[in-house]
Amino acid sequence: MESLHSIFVAPFADMVAAPDFFLQVVWEGLVSGVLYALIALGFVLIFKSSRIFNFAQGIMVVFAALTLVGLHERGVPALLAVPLTLVVMFFLAVAIERVVLRPLVNQPDIILFMATIGVTLFLIGLGETIFGGENKVMITQQLGIPTGSWTMEPFGGFVSIEQKDVTAVVGAVLLVIALLVFLNKSKMGRAIRALGDDHQAALSVGISLSTIWVIVWFISGIIALATGIVWGARAGVSFALEVIALKALPVLMLGGLESVNGAIVGGLAIGVLEKVFEIYWGQPLLGGNTEAWFAYMLALLVLLVRPQGLFGEKIIERV
């Protein structure tokens, strides 16, 4: 009885007793959810257009952020460093297409997956060689991102909201809108979607595979830079982010590998749920740190019910 009460009643009683705290928990969850969603978005774009499960998305985030901070350290003004970083990300996209993807066209999925892990290791080594292995501080103020915080006082308590988190959320929303417009309205965007639907049909109507790949990887690079700035402002720039980026996997599984909407919904849902679970169940009952596995277990449970994810396309198999 005691234990049933602590699982099914006490957490909800806590939520009601301190609603301001609950709001804070949800907000914190949403902000991490935005990060997961952004990383997952980078994955989805590449997966849609090339069926490559891009493990390197996480390290691209670190690499973009490191380049930005590194350029600034070397005396480049912050607002010039951003376009310069984008140039670097563009050349990275070209290099990946030329050196890695082109020779591996038509290989099994797992080989391409491994190749992106190879890219990850290479970028870690390269980033450390050029910029050093220690953690960096994101140049938040220099980029014009506000750093203060707003405090609201609902229900007699307080909810503290960092302005940079708000900036992050707004920035992410704008980025997603721009991306959706690009994918749905522009010619290039339609080509990308066509490639995602059917490679050969797309090729036969004159869509250039290699151009599209460069563009898609470049867009992922832009998303990576945005993610890097957002996350760097929150927690500093370091290679530890590589592991956090793995969280994008359950997000993808939940949302479905091909779905842009799924990536966003999945990211936000996992961000909020894992935080709420950790605070109200994990810490009091399980000794904490449940965020390490909660997302994966949740995705696993969802997959058992819907093997293609919440938004994924139904898998039809033929022999």
Partner: peptide
């Protein structure tokens, strides 16, 4: 406890402290 992967994002721990 703060896990190795959570060092830079301790929001759960500090929510607990709050």
């Amino acid at each position: 406890p703060v896990g190795l992967t959570e060092m830079q994002n301790q929001s759960a721990q500090w929510l607990q402290i709050r």
